[in-house]
């Protein structure tokens, strides 16, 4: 009975959407905002990656809201699990074999380096804070799965995450203090296509990369600790 109602509802929505999608042409865009960002983005921000300049500079406030949502989800996850008594008994973890353990110890700094490269050069090549933070979190996932018994200290995780968020908001408030608006680009633009260019964009992306990496690693740590 439930299936028949669901299929009838979906059939009605399919007919409606297929009539509407026929009007959208594929491969032509009429938007003026995208053209403005493409034409003026190079002189106004100095970043080579236009998507980065849209995310951090032109729509920086939306990125602040997204960081707030991620932070709320991580806190909610910690609050849902935090009311169990932490087991202080030293449990016996079976150690992994020597080949797997050595492989993990060799790969972990390499993956961290690749993740850091992705979020440091976010304004020159495809990439940025969120992609680099996800790669850093996968390095921590590798460590939790293979080298059993090694943990990240809770306190240093929280310190890194809070510092990342504070640097982002602090940069925005400096723009407010000098009188030109929140998240105003106040550092010099520099030379095009070098590392130290585009004002405050690399600094904000580095802070976001650290914050997202530490947050996702903390989420994984909470889930694995819960499921033992």
């Amino acid at each position: 009975m439930r299936r028949i109602i669901a299929i009838a509802l979906l059939a009605i929505i399919v007919m409606g959407i297929s009539l509407a999608v026929r009007e959208i042409p594929f491969g032509k865009t009429d938007t003026k905002v995208g053209e403005y960002y493409l034409n003026e983005g190079r002189e106004e921000t100095g970043a080579a990656n236009i998507v980065t300049s849209v995310v951090v500079n032109y729509r920086g406030f939306d990125t602040l809201g997204e960081i707030a949502v991620l932070f709320t989800a991580a806190i909610g996850l910690g609050a849902v699990f935090g009311s169990r008594k932490k087991r202080k008994v030293a449990e016996e973890v079976e150690k992994s074999s020597l080949i797997v353990y050595t492989g993990c110890r060799f790969l972990f700094p390499v993956i961290l380096l690749v993740g850091a490269y992705i979020f440091i050069y976010g304004h020159l090549t495809p990439g940025g804070g969120f992609q680099g933070g996800a790669v850093v979190a996968s390095a921590f996932l590798l460590m939790y799965l293979t080298c059993r018994g090694k943990r990240v200290r809770d306190k240093s995780n929280k310190v890194v995450e809070s510092l990342g968020g504070l640097i982002f908001v602090g940069m925005g408030l400096v723009g407010l203090v000098i009188g030109k608006g929140f998240l105003f680009n106040f550092l010099p633009k520099g030379e095009f296509l070098t590392l130290f260019s585009a004002g405050i964009i690399p600094i904000i992306y580095i802070a976001i990369g650290f914050k997202v990496g530490a947050e996702l690693a903390g989420v994984l740590d909470n889930l694995i600790e819960e499921s033992k």
């Binding site: 992609q131 996800a134 996968s138 996932l141 994984l220």
Partner: peptide, 23 residues
């Protein structure tokens, strides 16, 4: 869209699968 491809591969294919398997 190379930025979005990188984000979807790193987050959607690696981290979401790991969280599901732990759950």
């Amino acid at each position: 869209a190379p930025d979005v491809a990188m984000a979807e591969a790193a987050i959607g294919a690696a981290l979401v699968t790991a969280i599901f398997i732990i759950a």
